[in-house]
Design a protein around this nucleic acid. Sequence first.
RNA 1: GGGGAGUUACCCAAGCGGUCAACGGGGUCAGACUGUAAAUCUGAUGGCUUUGCCUUCGCAGGUUCGAAUCCUGCACUCCCCA
Length: 433
Amino acid sequence: MSVAPDLLAEFEARGLVHQSTDPAALREWLATPGRRVYAGFDPTADSLHVGHLVALMLLRRVAAAGHEPVAVIGGATGMVGDPSGRSEERNLLSPEELAANIAGVDRQIRTILAAAGPAGPLAGRVHVVDNADWMRDVGYLTFLRDVGKHVPLAQMLGKDSVKSRLERDGGLSYTEFSYMLLQAWDFVHLADALDCRVQIGGSDQWGNITAGIELGRRLRGCDLHGITCPLLTKADGTKMGKTAAGAIWLDPARTSPYRFYQYWINLNDDDAGRCLLRLTELPLEEIRSLDEARAATPAARETQKRLAAELTRLVHGEEGLAVARQATDIFFGAEITAIDDAALTEIFADVPSSEFPRSALDGDGLALVEALEATGLAKSKGAARRTIEQGGGYVNNRRVADVAYRLTPRDLAGAATLVLRSGKKSYALARFR
RNA sequence: GGGGAGUUACCCAAGCGGUCAACGGGGUCAGACUGUAAAUCUGAUGGCUUUGCCUUCGCAGGUUCGAAUCCUGCACUCCCCA
């Protein structure tokens, strides 16, 4: 019988282990290929965000090591709300919202897990399941007798997620308090149904994971294992994937591929190095050489570029990466010529656009000053004038120094669109119909 | 109830009869520098049909050739005494 690559060692080498149950037992169980390992995703929104990437990548690594990843979507647990890592009670989601969220999350998980890793196509070896499927029809009384009876209250009260909330003013509801029982039962169910004996998750999941392990021992006398990985934070202490403008989502409709790409490009050196290790599948030697390159020529930003490329390709595919790169060229000054409107619209997805009648370009054309004001790039025509005088006015990324400049059909970058810019990074799309 | 101080552009704040669209600081915007970071430096910062015009200095009147600046009334804010 073949022996699977040492997954645990891989995790450790990449700084992905925060806590784990007995490493020796874990290693032994994982030595046989084809083991099933699970991670859960609660459908709190219709898209996952950057914070979920660690767990998704963990599952891919599981697959790459010859095992079978199991992604559990929390259709049932999402009904209740996980108190872990939360300072306040969650609002309940309506069943409709939840259904939409599950659909969105399911699609993303499948896309990312199905994509070929170093192990090749994973079709047939990836399990995506919804815990509502086994939870929905369990009656409350049954649950209390079969599950609740085997969980000592002292154990539940001892969990950080509960303790920290009880010490706060808001406390927590019975509903959220019960959350860990549901997740614990998931683990036991998966052990029964799929012989899945390892659960992985973020460090805030340790309490929920051990609750499952404990339940498995009491109920089945079986050995379950758990691994948590450190929460990914940035050097400034903020959570990875959060920006002033909100979370970085995986859904291109929420966060354009360009902005997704830029998020990684803009990381500082240390954060980028850590992400390379934890979020990509680049071989360790390659990461080491990028570390050296970064130390030698930090300005080249090779780490950030590589990181952004890897992750954008994973989440948005080759096309998404191509668009993001094209958008990057454009946003950093490349003059815009002969590009079709569809591409422009896609590249400038995050940028405000204004409509003008096509006839505005005829004759003398439209004063640039007016266009800048109308698109909101300048608060008044005076401000627009000032911007141009100071060298901050651009049409299709070409600097316009003439305050009296008028836009005519010559200035269209696409069939009916042109790109206005004020200063370094404020863009607006002007469409003429 | 009595006495005093104040209300200026996004914020703070100077100005106390003409040279005031109004000093200075913060913020913001633009430029340079730079690693798409931070810091730094420079310029701009009421509106417009911009060598000029129009509207702003709590609100409403008044004095004056001329008011943010003087007078009257009103509103609001703060401080001290009761």
